[in-house]
Design a protein around this nucleic acid. Structure first.
Length: 268
DNA sequence: ATGACCTGTCGCACAGGA
């Protein structure tokens, strides 16, 4: 049996429903985690996903902004979401997925972007981002996270110098400042430890991006990307991966693409 | 200059994204 898991910041699931359905038809992931669905639970296009073969859904939306969802070919149980920093944005949803050979807890995160100014003293959005990471660090250190978890989503941090187009030019740009990259690396390596499933298969000496700004005249030619979207797992789960892929061509799908592309991992 | 955009909202400008 082989299983694949994908994550994609879709930047409005209603606007981009046609390309999401194209992606599901073409790549057939068993689980897809979406961020920035930008709709309430009632507005989520549940029937379209059911008809596409994804009847099991965990949706945690809100009006206008943010919002996360998991759609799956396999039944989801124990669906819940957690509030971070006492700010009730829809930035997390989790569900237990039983493949018949053991259950895996899936977590879908939309970590705060952090605004423009990388200084928590003057920018409450950046303070929120650092606080969110700090709460994650404590949560992930609890005994439950020793094994059996997979986390994915838009982490809004490109941790390694080859996760951005220019390490030097982005050192003061939110998403690649040392305080952020060090916090994310501490999260990866701290607690019980996580495995970055994409970097397990695509080495750190290769430039790798999952997001390109809408502002560039030609995103492909300029290629000023960042790897903001991630899939991590506990060691017991990570041991079963067979490959990982970032779907760069999706940045050019349709005349209204998301600024993020899908990230996919495959398991034996 | 990264570089001048994209989304949803009780819209006709704004917040939030990154």
């Amino acid at each position: 049996m082989s299983v694949s898991v994908a994550t994609w910041n879709i930047n409005s699931v209603r606007l981009r429903l046609p390309i999401v359905l194209d992606f599901l038809r073409q790549y057939q992931p068993d689980v897809l985690m979406l961020q920035e669905i930008k709709c309430t639970n009632d507005q989520f296009p549940a029937n379209a996903f059911t008809e596409a073969g994804y009847p099991y859904q965990a949706v945690h939306g809100q009006k206008g902004y943010h919002g996360v969802a998991i759609v799956s070919k396999f039944p989801l149980t124990d669906i819940s979401s957690k509030v971070f920093c006492e700010i009730p944005d829809s930035r997390h949803v989790s569900a237990l997925l039983d493949f018949g050979q053991g259950a895996v807890k899936f977590h879908n995160f939309y970590i705060p972007a952090g605004g423009d100014e990388p200084d928590p003293a003057i920018n409450p959005k950046f303070k929120h981002k650092l606080g969110f990471l700090d709460e994650l660090k404590h949560w992930f250190a609890t005994p439950d996270f020793e094994r059996g978890h997979l986390i994915a989503g838009d982490f809004n941090i490109a941790p390694h110098e080859n996760d951005v187009w220019s390490h030097k030019q982005l050192l003061k740009v939110v998403s690649h400042t040392p305080v952020e990259t060090e916090a994310l690396t501490a999260l990866l390596e701290g607690g019980h430890g996580w495995v970055d499933l994409v970097r397990k298969h695509i080495p750190y000496d290769q430039k790798l991006y999952s997001w390109w700004s809408y502002r560039a005249r030609d995103w492909n030619a300029a290629d000023k990307g960042r790897r903001l979207d991630h899939i991590w797992a506990t060691a017991d789960i990570a041991a079963h991966t067979t490959g990982a892929e970032i779907l760069r061509p999706a940045r050019g799908w349709s005349d209204k693409p998301s600024d993020h592309v899908p990230v996919i991992t495959r398991f034996a």
